[in-house]
Design a binder for these strands. Structure first.
Lengths: 340, 340
DNA sequence: CTGAAAGCGCTAACAT
DNA sequence: ATGTTAGCGCTTTCAG
């Protein structure tokens, strides 16, 4: 960076103007105790007069915290940006960090070159920790960061055997509750529209479906399980196929709200009445679920809670590096929106 | 930040292992010329062996660039996240920065406390410059940063008299072209649905409308100009009112695509045929314009170009601080989508 | 309670 | 071509 040609005042200049030593100024700007009120005021006056702002590079070099954490997201998931999922998480993370006086930095990763630069950036001591969103199973970034000793927290896990600290929603339990709700409503033939099997979250939601069927003593028919990719279109297509093969279906569990919305569309198109003929439940509970006709019953993830928990874990690790990773699974909640 | 307990190797250790001085290592990691290939290799080997990553805080302290720039956006405009407007800009900015080897940091500002922290962060020498999006007229942030000597580039200007470097689209010219298109199509009674008058962009688009009318020798009827707030709902309401007062309207210029879509809805509701009875043109040209029925003719802003230009200006200012601010107004383009 | 001094890890100017 | 040296601005002992 171009030196602000003798422009920005330094701590030393403040000290000189205030007629104290630099140590004292340092204590004042760090709210350290043990400074006489009068000198504190004198220093503060000098700071204001000079418009002094501490140089953060120097500060972190000198051995304290960087005062910032990064929230990393793969650019492939940019669509997330517009979704409540993303904004709620970022909002919650931002709030929690804000309270802690930490600056939030969002970083996007797309190409390998960007990845490389990001790693150097993150490992370069300019952030105190990293929060990673929607990490793919094969992504090694979390390990690289964690191994480098950088406090790292994932949103969601990459596999059952995740070895980096993470926060996740109870996907199994949520799906189980959703399907349980269908069972409780007297549905006998319940289909599932799942997500990509290579995504752990999809596996979990499918497992929940199975467990619920098993709980209810219902048989699982393989042909009742169709794979989607979390998009609305895929849900629609999946449902259309299901209707054809299994006209007797009276309940559908979709592993995402978008797919549930798609399923709804396909059902309407096929002339089925919802929920009279077929009941549908989704997973995620974003605004989408309320906009459908009829509104969808869905499993809600506690976004705010997830964000705050991620920050809490991160701050704790920054405070006191943990030897082991930890994980937190947050409870989900079924939001029933049936007019039946 | 917790010191990575003697974990992370330093440049000095690399030098020792490679059996060279630190200056040499510095040259190698900075791709500086004038290092014998053999020693360069030796150093590289040491770097790999130790897993050395330069400490960025130290690097920026020592006087060079921070290697990062911030893209700041007010959190009030979060909705932008999902919009093509936002993602295209971020994409273009990211690409340009990526080529330059600079890390992009997105920062959100909401509360005053966050603002304050952001200023300290930005002025703290951890970024080489700042790009600001959708800044309100009354916002002093740009001046604070620019005055502090931090290279700063705005997307759009706050007023006619903007004193911070900015890149903007030719809003006047775009609106003029749009309305000119209506005139060319033989429309005689052309209404305008404008944006909030306190937003400079809205003023410019309104001015373009006026100039086009004037060019065509058409009179401007005050009651043909209605104010919206850029949302679809406001466009719909505005159009409904216009239809009532001026059933003879045969052309509509909306200062945003969303409002144009709203106007379209109102027209359909009123039984008007588009574009036979009434032609509508919008401004912005995001996907929305293609999804309406019929597709909207709109003024397209060159998002990619805007993003790249912002980065270019920023990098230039980083390279060589300008005494004066500069501005670039990019041409817009009318995208005609009329089946008439 | 406060001043002085010793670095943090790196770059850059100066020697060699 | 490469080693050496002097800081960058701050935090943090360690004295006083």
């Amino acid at each position: 960076m171009l030196k602000r040609s003798s422009g920005t005042p330094t701590l030393e200049e403040v000290a000189a103007l205030a007629g104290v030593g630099r140590g004292t100024v340092s204590r004042v700007i760090n709210d350290a105790s043990g400074v006489k009120a009068s000198t504190r005021h004198a220093v503060q006056r000098a700071i204001d007069e000079l418009g002094y702002v501490p140089n953060l590079a120097a500060r972190s070099l000198a051995g304290r915290r960087a005062g910032a954490v990064a929230l990393v997201m793969p650019k492939t998931d940019w669509r997330l940006f517009g979704e409540p999922f993303f904004s709620e998480i970022v909002g919650a993370v931002g709030d929690a960090l804000s309270e802690a006086g930490v600056q939030l930095l969002l970083t996007l990763v797309r190409t390998d070159a960007e990845r490389q630069r990001l790693v150097e950036y993150l490992r370069g001591g300019r952030v105190d920790g990293a929060l990673l969103m929607s990490v793919r199973a094969e992504d090694r970034l979390p390990d690289m960061l964690a191994d480098a000793g950088l406090p790292t927290v994932l949103l969601g896990r990459r596999s059952a055997d995740e070895r980096v600290t993470y926060v996740d929603a109870d996907n199994v339990g949520g799906a189980r509750a959703a399907v349980g709700h269908l069972v409780g409503g007297g549905r006998k033939t319940i289909a599932a529209i799942t997500g990509p099997p290579e995504m752990y979250v999809a596996q979990c939601r499918l497992r929940g479906y199975r467990e619920a069927l098993s709980d209810a003593g219902l048989d699982e028919l393989p042909s009742l399980v169709v794979q989607g990719d979390f998009t609305e279109t895929s849900g629609q297509r999946a449902m259309a196929g299901l209707i054809e093969r299994h006209p007797e279906i009276d309940g559908v569990f979709a592993a995402s709200d978008s797919m549930a919305a798609g399923a709804l569309a396909a059902l309407h198109a096929a002339g089925r009445r919802v929920p009279q003929d077929v009941a549908v439940v989704g997973f995620d509970d974003f605004e989408l679920a309320e906009q459908t006709e009829p509104p969808l019953t869905t499993v809600r993830q506690p976004m705010k809670e997830i964000g705050r928990t991620m920050v809490r874990l991160l701050l704790e690790e920054m405070e006191q590096p943990e030897v082991a990773w930890r994980h937190v699974i947050l409870r989900t909640r079924l939001v029933v929106r049936e007019s039946a």
